[in-house]
């Protein structure tokens, strides 16, 4: 029985290909509700119960009361008068969150990436050297294209920007080529689900 309902709802979703319609809208809203409900329950179970209730009530870890109270200040969003108090836990999450981000981000995505670009050519084949030079040229021209957008009147600078565009188009083309495979995979999966449901009905 449930297989039939699932199949019908899947067809409702696919009906969007014929244009927006009430069947699709209904199913879409149903998914939003179910997904939010499921997320809420999971967060309640994995979060509130496991990270707050059990440590406090069963394990006597009283320190959780302080972040718990701070977290409960989010409830002030419901009050017009005390709304500003809900900013306190947000300030804590945001402030410490961005502070924690700075160092590791710089190291992971800037320093180590620079390190990988500035390689020592000794012992490399000619092909590898050329490839590293192309990586460097693509990197610098792309950065140039985005960072120095004001001076495009000079021919030399226009040329640099155009080289940047050329490499970017190669990269975007590769991403697009990859994306096609991703999208087709999603459809293959749905057809698989269709087959499974139909087999289990008959």
């Amino acid at each position: 029985m449930v297989e039939i309902i699932t199949l019908i709802l899947m067809l409702f979703v696919l009906s969007f290909l014929m244009g927006d319609n009430p069947f699709f809208k209904f199913t879409e809203r149903l998914i939003v509700g179910i997904s939010a409900g499921y997320g809420f329950l999971k967060l309640f179970d994995d979060g509130f119960i496991k990270k707050f209730w059990i440590p406090l009530v069963q394990e006597g870890q009283y320190w959780v009361i302080i972040p718990g109270l701070l977290g409960m200040m989010f409830f002030f969003t419901f009050s017009k008068k005390w709304n500003f108090l809900a900013k306190y836990p947000l300030a804590f999450l945001l402030g410490t969150g961005v502070g924690l981000e700075i160092g590791p981000r710089i190291e992971t995505s800037i320093l180590r990436q620079i390190n990988a670009t500035a390689v020592n050519f000794s012992g490399m084949s000619a092909g590898q050297v050329i490839n590293y030079i192309i990586i460097l040229v693509a990197l610098l021209t792309t950065m140039y294209y985005f960072l120095f957008v004001l001076r495009r009147d000079r021919p030399a600078e226009k040329l640099i920007a155009n080289i940047g565009i050329f490499f970017m188009m190669l990269g975007f083309g590769a991403s697009f080529g990859y994306t096609i495979m991703g999208r087709i995979s999603l459809l293959i999966e749905v057809i698989n689900i269709f087959f499974e449901k139909i087999t289990s009905i008959f």
């Binding site: 979060g47 972040p67 718990g68 701070l70 977290g71 989010f74 409830f75 410490t96």
Partner: peptide, 10 residues
């Protein structure tokens, strides 16, 4: 603290 506070952000 982050883990506990994030629970309530929900």
């Amino acid at each position: 603290w982050h883990m506990v506070i994030a629970v309530f952000a929900l």
